[in-house]
């Protein structure tokens, strides 16, 4: 193990390390801690200039209640869910199919199709912006959740296919060969042999895509406007405009907007990290 395991180092360094850890963590999360503290302060603290002292009273319920019951926030959150969940299902489904084709079959165009997905996944959003916005307008899907979902599914398919294909490549190919010898139809091999083995990849990818899509801001701004279809990342800016300079409410709103992916991460940590670091180790 590198660096030298702490138990093999002098006692003095062990103690230093143990006290350095929490200190480093507090420094690292300082901006966030400040916002968390902001979100439980009363408005009075800001007018009186008590910005970074302790809250003069504990207003967590009042502030968060304001966010949940007296703003468009729940609406935006619901929109985010209705955009994120179908995208995850769509992108994971498409990429399971495509990943199977690219991971199992050997044909001439294989590597080129694969590279098309990889390259497309790296493209800057801006080069797609004008045509995709036009396309969405032409289909009558501008400012709808469907329009946003369709685009997200298509774009995420690039990354997802890369992920799935690499995962399937690492599976034992003999299983497929054995099934073929048995005369099992190809689609049955997909469904009964490969899909059960892909469960960890599907879980990892779902968590990742959930986070990516929930956190998307650019496309939300380009393809939607207004509370009837905007997700929470775009909604938070109108929320902040509504509560201009009310830092306690804006902080509470931001924390609420950030919460679902954070929960997802802490609940599914193993899958999340497995997904992010696929390929970081040979």
């Amino acid at each position: 193990m590198f660096p030298t395991p702490i138990e093999k180092t002098p006692r003095s360094w062990q103690l230093t390390y143990q006290s350095l850890l929490p200190l480093a963590l507090i420094m690292w999360l300082l901006p966030l801690i400040a916002v968390a503290v902001f979100s439980i302060k009363p408005a009075v603290d800001f007018t009186q200039g008590n910005y970074w002292g302790l809250p003069s009273s504990f207003e967590m319920f009042a502030n968060y209640g304001q966010v949940f019951f007296n703003s468009d926030m729940p609406r935006y959150m619901l929109n985010s869910v209705l955009i994120t969940v179908p995208t995850v299902i769509g992108a994971v489904t498409l990429s399971c199919l495509a990943g199977f084709a690219l991971g199992i079959y050997k044909f001439k165009a294989n590597i080129w199709v694969f590279f098309m997905f990889v390259a497309g996944n790296f493209v800057p959003f801006q080069i797609l912006m004008v045509p995709v916005r036009d396309l969405t307008l032409d289909m009558g899907l501008y400012n709808t959740k469907t329009g946003l979902v369709l685009f997200h599914v298509a774009f995420q398919t690039g990354f997802c296919t890369l992920f799935m294909r690499n995962f399937i490549r690492a599976l034992p190919y003999e299983l497929v060969e054995a099934a073929r010898v048995e005369g099992i139809a190809e689609w049955k091999i997909f469904w009964y042999v490969v899909i059960p083995l892909m469960k960890p990849a599907i879980a990892a990818l779902s968590v990742l895509i959930f986070t990516f899509i929930w956190n998307d801001y650019f496309w939300a701004v380009v393809l939607t406007q207004g509370p009837e279809s905007q997700p929470v990342t775009a909604g938070i800016t109108s929320f902040n405009a509504q509560f201009r300079a009310a830092y306690h409410l804006m902080s509470a709103g931001s924390i609420v907007a950030a919460l679902p992916p954070v929960l997802m991460f802490f609940l599914m940590q193993k899958h999340f990290i497995a997904g992010l670091t696929l390929g970081a180790v040979k």
């Binding site: 495509a98 199977f100 084709a101 199709v113 497309g120 396309l135 599914v153 298509a154």
Partner: peptide, 18 residues
């Protein structure tokens, strides 16, 4: 078979990205 499996992903990707 591979092309049948690829078709939906390629169609979406070609339409919205390429």
């Amino acid at each position: 078979t591979p092309w049948l499996f690829l078709a939906p992903a390629i169609l979406f990707f070609a339409f919205y990205v390429i």
